[in-house]
Nucleic acid binder design. Structure first.
Lengths: 220, 220
DNA sequence: TCAGACATGTAAGTCGTTACATGATTCA
DNA sequence: TGAATCATGTAACGACTTACATGTCTGA
């Protein structure tokens, strides 16, 4: 009895858009959900088999579509119910485990300059990511205005039989809103870096200007 | 050969403040680092033993201090070097796996009202957390102005022999700055919730005001 | 006296990644 | 022809959590 396996629901949810293969799922997640989700093949394929075994999905060989036969998975009504039950459940708080913050917190073991250098590297990394996100946002919001969906995403949204225009525009909206979440989160990290760099820089200057040596022990 | 075990370094880093027992480490992490870190006993005790086996820490029985004897762990110079090496290394990007976002993204499978309800619950949860953080911030920043450190933290900072005033005030600063990170992150999440709720609310109204039925399929 | 904190651990199991293995097809 | 992509999987391992087991001491 699995306890908090989210892969199951990620799969079920995406399959409820349209039937896909393991390979399709992996690509879709990489291209469209990478701001907030990831899956590995080692997790994907065995989980798909489990879903079939539990009657939440069915597997069938699709030999016409591209040229090479692939295994298409489809959600069953039971799978759909399980998925919607999960959707309505409150998510549990993820246990906090942020390596960057841990390192920052412990970096008081280093001289100020070194701590500041590490923090600056982190900031640069976030800045880079920020720019990528903004590019994606430009593309996506242009797309949702003009209806001209980017290729990788269009393919996913094209179902047979075609879903309603409403459903598709709602899915586009979700792409955009989750991206917005990523953007706001990165902005917050950048703002924090600036705040922290300012404080640490000031402390560093203070330390340098103070008369050094004499141990620095406490007065009694 | 462990690959990305962060527990090792969390332990090494905290022990470099002062020797502690497994129990002490757990409490310190729960009380002071819970904004960004957590450890379970099942990880803590075995890892401590491994560190000893690798010569990065030493274990000794301390029978005087409180009353009950406890096992105190101390970092060795080798452990200190390993820790500082890790500190200077760039952290790897954590793989993205945000259950809330996944659920939100997939919630287009639900009627608008339901998606909005789930999002509102998430927002309330973040708001609650926000207020807790702000309380902590008030306490901590008062403490760093007056030097009147909260009990739970003071105990950790009191070492024997006493560390320098500089070292201690730097540790206090780290408590405060990591808390600031938590606060800015939660603020960003709240802002995103408001943005998303607004957009979804508008879509929901649009949908209601539009003439329903007729399948909603696409015109050719 | 007895609940709750102090204190240390272990066993079983889940979740997830990485690396490998395999083979077909497309296209430059 | 040979590299890239399509496509499906498995084995081994690492990290982590949960639940359990055990016993002591303190203070209401």
């Amino acid at each position: 009895m699995p306890l908090k396996n989210k892969t199951r629901f990620a799969i079920l949810g995406l399959l409820s858009w349209k039937p896909m293969s393991g390979y399709d799922l992996k690509k879709l997640i990489e291209i469209g959900l990478s701001y907030f989700w990831s899956e590995s093949y080692g997790q994907l394929y065995p989980t798909l088999e489990k879903l079939v075994a539990e009657g939440l999905a069915v597997k069938k060989l699709d030999r016409k579509h591209p040229k090479r036969p692939r295994h298409l998975y489809t959600v069953t009504p039971k799978g759909r119910r399980a998925f919607e039950r999960w959707l309505r459940e409150p998510s549990d708080m993820p246990r906090a485990r942020n390596e960057h913050q841990l390192k920052f917190f412990l970096s008081c073991a280093l001289p100020f300059e070194e701590g500041i250098r590490v923090l600056r590297e982190y900031r640069a990394q976030q800045q880079e990511r920020y720019e990528l996100y903004l590019d994606s946002e430009r593309i996506l919001s242009a797309a949702s205005r003009t209806g001209d969906v980017p290729d990788e995403i269009r393919e996913v949204l094209e179902t047979d039989p075609p879903s309603t225009k409403d459903a598709r525009s709602r899915q586009m909206l979700m792409f955009l809103l989750t991206l917005r979440h990523g953007i706001l989160a990165v902005e917050a990290r950048l703002a924090w870096c600036d705040e922290a760099l300012e404080v640490l820089g000031e402390q560093s200057r203070l330390e340098k200007s103070r008369p050094r040596g004499a141990g620095g022990g406490d007065p009694p």
